[in-house]
């Protein structure tokens, strides 16, 4: 600015920003600190108990023999499984839709809207609708929902128990994946703690329905920002469409893919409402996730210390994803 800010303007700007900063300092940072402290206490039951217990809660969750440890291991397994499949589905479907919509189609805004509108809907609504669609029915009484459709079009083999399927596909040590893991020194991963609960598929479908359109929007914006001349030049050089995408478009879209992974990834790590409305963590704990476990442990079972520990671990996992991203962005902006 040509004229230096006057002192009073400086003061006013900081004064006006101060309430927000103070509110966030308390409601985000101090609260996180307090949650961390609670996780180190013995607080169980209605009345707070701040007796220091060290890492007791964490030890129980990671190394204990009890059900809370078993359940927490399941949570982590599900979080990884869900995130992995959800990301793959969302990114690939979103990308394909973006490419299709980008072909100068007629009624583009209609298609865009149809793919994007689920984003505006609550996860609770999504859960209610998809639970109804994916209700499997009983083999003896008759199929309903999507199974009924599959039956009608002769695709019986695709019928599934969906969200009521309790089976977990483990990576066993003697499976091909297990053997590869063994060879690269990660043999410990091939255990019954690692695997994919089939019931998660229903959640992946619902979440992908809700957020793949959003991914499409991100990619579409990216595609639109790639100058046509670049693609045209490649075509002139004799590249076919596939090669254009492989060598020009996809590399240029990498920052978008990174943003999408971060945004979808942190949503998926925090997923809560969808599980509540669709499966409520069942069958057994086949679809339990840390965010849900935290809530139930804290507010239903009133085990505050343990709930706080789960929250801290969840925050840590999200932070591992987010902080490098924020740092990278800040640095990129400073250089601009």
């Amino acid at each position: 600015m040509s004229r230096k800010p006057r002192n009073w303007e400086r003061a006013v700007s900081i004064l006006l920003l101060a309430p927000s900063i103070l509110a966030l300092a308390i409601f985000v940072y101090a609260f996180i600190g307090w949650t961390g402290y609670v996780s180190l206490t013995r607080w169980e039951g209605a009345a707070p108990d701040f007796t220091f217990a060290g890492l007791h809660s964490y030890q129980r969750l990671f190394l204990g023999q009890g059900t809370d440890a078993i359940r927490f291991h399941i949570d982590l397994r599900n979080m990884v499984g869900f995130t992995l499949f959800f990301l793959i589905a969302c990114l690939s479907i979103g990308f394909v839709l973006a490419v299709l919509v980008d072909q100068r189609v007629r009624a583009e805004s209609f298609f865009r809207s149809v793919f994007l509108f689920p984003m505006a809907v609550s996860f609770i609504v999504t859960g209610v609708a998809w639970r109804w669609i994916l209700t499997p029915g009983d083999p003896a009484i008759g199929a309903v929902g999507i199974n009924l459709l599959l039956e009608k079009i002769g695709l019986d083999s695709l019928k599934s128990l969906w969200f009521t399927d309790p089976t977990v596909k483990f990576i066993t040590p003697d499976s091909p994946v297990g053997q590869i893991l063994n060879q690269i020194g990660l043999g410990f991963l091939a255990s019954s703690d690692v695997g994919y609960a089939m019931a998660l598929t229903a959640l992946v479908i619902a979440a992908t329905w809700q957020l793949s359109g959003y991914t499409m929007a991100l990619y579409l914006a990216g595609l639109r920002s790639i100058p046509d001349e670049l693609r045209e030049a490649a075509r002139m050089d004799g590249a076919n469409e596939l090669q254009v995408y492989r060598h020009i478009v996809i590399p240029l879209l990498q920052p978008i893919t990174l943003s999408a992974v971060i945004i979808l990834g942190h949503i998926s790590l925090k997923i809560y409402d969808l599980v509540v409305s669709m499966t409520g963590s069942g069958p057994g704990f086949a679809t339990d996730v840390p965010a849900l476990n935290m809530w139930r442990t804290t507010f239903d079972a009133t085990l505050f210390a343990q709930g706080a520990a789960i929250a801290v671990i969840l925050l840590f996992l999200v932070a591992v994803l987010i902080i490098p991203y924020l740092a990278y962005n800040t640095r990129a902006e400073a250089q601009r």
């Binding site: 927000s20 900063i21 966030l24 409601f27 985000v28 101090a30 609260f31 996180i32 307090w34 949650t35 609670v38 942190h266 790590l269 925090k270 809560y272 965010a291 935290m294 809530w295 804290t298 507010f299 505050f304 709930g307 706080a308 789960i310 929250a311 801290v312 969840l314 925050l315 999200v318 987010i322 902080i323 924020l326 740092a327 962005n329 800040t330 902006e333 400073a334």
Partner: peptide, 23 residues
């Protein structure tokens, strides 16, 4: 300000579970 901004942003990514008890 450049340092403050990411600190503000972090607040939108946190899992709210980590602030529910104190809240």
């Amino acid at each position: 300000a450049n340092l403050l901004f990411p600190l503000i942003l972090f607040g939108m990514f946190i899992p709210y579970q980590s602030i529910l008890i104190p809240l």
